[in-house]
């Protein structure tokens, strides 16, 4: 389940996995999230490392802590993630597009024309 590429820190990979679970709906709002011990067993990692992944989500307010009971998905966790992902992914795509355009020496007006054309082809209305 973990990327065999050891570069990305494990706790970040775990955090992202949890985020995906929330986005996909496997974990719904106010549902209990896996404990650090459960995550440790699932991912075959030290519980402290798994705990760091949970802490990341806690800081982002995707999950909240109930004393003595564990971590639970925030009621707006799903929306938050969606917004964040959308922004970063889309942002990335746009940056890549602009860089590619620059490389191919396509200027801004040409680029807009290409985008319009593609949009219409996909059945959109401008």
């Amino acid at each position: 389940m973990l990327e065999t590429d050891h570069s990305k820190p494990i706790y970040i990979q775990i955090a992202e996995w949890l985020e995906n679970e929330i986005l996909e709906g496997s974990l719904s709002a106010d549902e209990k999230v896996y404990s650090q011990y459960q995550l440790a067993e699932i991912f075959n990692v030290n519980p402290a490392t798994a705990g760091k992944g949970l802490t990341l989500l806690l800081e982002k307010e995707i999950v909240y802590k109930k004393r003595g009971l564990g971590m639970f998905v925030s009621s707006n966790g799903h929306e938050k993630l969606l917004a964040e992902r959308t922004e970063s992914i889309l942002q990335n795509q746009i940056t890549n597009l602009l860089e590619e355009a620059k490389r191919l020496q396509i200027d801004y007006p040409q680029l807009l024309k290409l985008i319009e054309k593609a949009y219409k082809q996909q059945g959109g209305n401008i």
């Binding site: 973990l2 494990i10 030290n46």
Partner: peptide
Amino acid sequence: VEEIEHLLE
């Protein structure tokens, strides 16, 4: 080290 990385705190 690469083998035990995941185990360690």
